[in-house]
Design a protein around this nucleic acid. Structure first.
Length: 629
DNA sequence: CCCGGAATAA
DNA sequence: TTATTCCGGG
């Protein structure tokens, strides 16, 4: 029932959920926090401070009040709000900065910036302090950026601006709703919102970045849609700064080839296990062999669409950041307070623009899931299988695991092929729903790489590391020596950063993106910061394992898992290798929630516009849906 | 203050 | 699922 599966495989439900898109669904606390952070008006109550994603709640009661107003929960208070924030610890959206009162830190690594493409944390334009979020690398877990790219990336991550407008406005509006209380706050928000309105610059180029590991998922999540017929000439990069965000858009170098390369990896994702994933990066684009009916071009389109959607919906800074081949001229010197050059920032998506252009799309219904034209393949099998087996037995009892996966089992059992149902060409509305990409993607990406393709992958990897503790809030020094083994305590995962990018261009960013695919060869040498050079593979593994550990735990049942892991606990040490190993069981899936995001981003080809517009509409609509209390 | 479990609403 | 509520404990 739930899954529409009639026609083919449908994704499991979780795949459809828009997890955390601000527009869709109710506003989530972290979105709200971000929103406040970006508004100068609220700098007196909450502001960025310290490291990268660190912020301090200067007036807890006020923040609580605002939140309560938005959610129409007049009874809200800091105690409750903070409880909600604490839930984010597990999700790894936030963590507490120890020792500092009312200070929390976003784990942007994992976050999905959903609709907030780039948050400018530092927006401090007005406020001096607010800017700090630039990642200096100093933070505890962050490794010093050995490669420039890293540096940039980080900075980029944070900042970005502008696109927010569309989002913002929606949020604001929708959210406001009228509570009976009518807190004044709303009005403010609205005002603010109203202002930005105008379309944001339309498309600007984005810099595409591909994540090192390709998210297979993304492929999976294909979206039909985007038939972009055209060729994609890339539009000239226009840079025009938005009012909000001052960041210049970085000029994109010719993007031309991007797609191809990108695709290739993607291709690799093909579900069929038999295709092994080829490590070699070459771009062979043609991966198409699998059952897909698509040819590479199609895939391309899909990917593009996907990307867009990604942009629109969730962005994960991570995705952007690390992979870009951005080259930065400077060595690393993080300048904490001010963002150095942001050459890169990615331009936001142009969604808003389209929005404005297309006035109303009118029908909204279409947007959402209602129509997926194609279905994607289910997540990799993995755990489920196991579970299934065992679960059968167990199931009777209770099993926590639930059903949602039933589909999976089927899937797993079934042929690997993905079934995609392309719609014919649809143009009109195909939407791609991107829904969540969050954790899952992350997981998947990693896992998938190997897991999917190579089922056996899981395996060992144990020992991951423990996390150190991050506790100290302070950053040590940027130049600090790298820890012997990095870890990411919380998550910061930058764990494996991407391999450094080859110095491609010179200063400009190159866009290469995709190439990054992680090749071991290259990567290794560069390894970040010196963190020891860990072979990519290892890194992946590590990451993987880590994720597993964490996410796995977190994943589905986060709560439950948590319990399990209780001992390890976060901060330190914990290693539970066992868990890690065990992790194998979990491989995959689900992520659910939290938000995170995304996997790949491609540079948006101009052609996409169409798609984008649609997306926009969709997003717009989504946003509309706010509930009003 | 901060942490999380538990129950529960939406 | 994501909060909200309530609450005992550091």
């Amino acid at each position: 029932m739930k899954t529409p599966g009639d026609t083919g495989f449908a994704f499991p439900e979780w795949a459809y959920k828009p997890e955390s898109s601000p527009g869709s669904r109710q506003i989530q606390l972290w979105h709200f926090i971000l929103e406040l952070l970006r508004k100068e008006e609220y700098h007196d109550v909450i502001a960025w401070q310290g490291d990268y994603g660190e912020f301090v709640i200067k007036d807890p009661d006020e923040v609580a009040r605002l939140w309560g107003a938005r959610k129409c929960k007049p009874q809200m208070n800091y105690d409750k709000l903070s409880r909600a924030l604490r839930y984010y610890y597990n999700k790894r959206i936030l963590h507490k900065t120890k020792g500092k009162r009312f200070t929390y830190k976003f784990n942007f690594n994992k976050l999905v910036l959903v609709n907030y493409p780039f948050i400018d944390m530092g927006s401090g334009r007005g406020v001096p302090q607010s800017a700090p979020p630039v990642p200096t690398g100093g933070s505890h877990f962050r490794f010093p950026p050995s490669t420039p790219s890293e540096v940039l990336s980080s900075s980029e991550e944070l900042r970005s601006p502008g696109m927010f407008s569309s989002v913002a406005r929606r949020m604001a509006r929708g959210s406001v709703s009228d509570c009976s209380d009518g807190t004044s706050t709303n009005s403010e928000l609205e005002e603010a919102v109203g202002v930005d309105e105008r379309g944001v610059g339309p498309d600007r180029a984005f810099r595409g970045l591909l994540p090192p590991r390709l998210p297979h998922d993304s492929l999976f999540r294909v979206y039909g849609g985007a038939p972009n017929p055209a060729g994609l000439p890339r539009p000239a990069p226009r840079v025009h700064p938005e009012p909000l965000s001052p960041f210049p858009v970085s000029p994109l170098p010719g993007p031309g080839g991007l797609l191809a390369p990108t695709l290739s990896p993607a291709l690799s994702m093909t579900p069929t296990p038999h295709l092994a994933y080829t490590p070699s990066p070459s771009l062979s684009s043609p991966m198409v062999g699998s059952h897909f009916s698509f040819n590479p071009e199609d895939m391309k389109h899909y990917l593009q669409a996907h990307n867009q959607s990604v942009y629109n919906y969730h962005l994960s800074p991570r995705a952007f950041l690390h992979y870009p081949n951005i080259v930065i001229p400077q060595p690393h010197r993080p300048t904490p307070e001010k963002p150095p050059s942001h050459h890169l920032h990615a331009p936001p998506l142009a969604l808003s623009h389209s929005l404005s252009q297309h006035p109303g799309g009118g029908e909204e219904g279409q947007l959402l899931t209602s129509q997926f034209k194609f279905k994607l393949q289910p997540p990799p099998l993995g755990r489920k299988q196991r579970e299934a087996g065992s679960s059968l037995a167990v199931s009777a009892s209770s099993s926590s695991s639930q059903s949602s996966f039933t589909t999976n089992s089927v899937l797993t059992a079934g042929p690997p092929k993905i079934k995609v149902e392309p719609i014919s060409d649809i143009e009109s509305e195909e939407e791609v729903e991107v829904t969540d990409l969050s954790e899952e993607e992350e997981l998947n990406r990693e896992d998938d790489e190997r897991n999917i393709f190579t089922p056996m992958a899981h395996h060992h990897h144990h020992q991951i590391n423990s996390n150190n503790h991050q506790a100290n809030a302070n950053s040590s020094s940027p130049s600090a020596p790298l820890p012997p083994h990095y870890d990411d305590p919380d998550d910061d995962e930058e764990v494996f950063k991407t391999p450094a990018t080859p110095p491609i261009g010179s200063g400009s960013l190159a866009y290469p993106l995709i190439d990054l695919k992680t090749e071991p060869g290259q990567a290794a040498p560069i390894s970040p910061g010196g963190t020891r050079c860990i072979p990519l593979k290892l890194r992946f593994k590590r990451r993987w394992s880590k994720d597993q550990k964490m996410e796995a735990d977190g994943d589905r049942d986060e709560a439950k898992d948590k319990k399990v892991r209780a001992e390890g606990a976060e901060e330190g040490e914990g290693n539970k290798q066992e868990k890690g190993v065990r992790g194998g069981e979990m491989e995959n899936e689900r992520g659910r929630g939290g938000g995170v995001i995304l996997g790949l981003v491609l540079p948006p080809p101009p052609t996409q516009r169409r798609a984008s517009s649609e997306l926009q509409r969709a997003t717009a609509q989504l946003s509309l849906e706010n509930t009003g209390c």
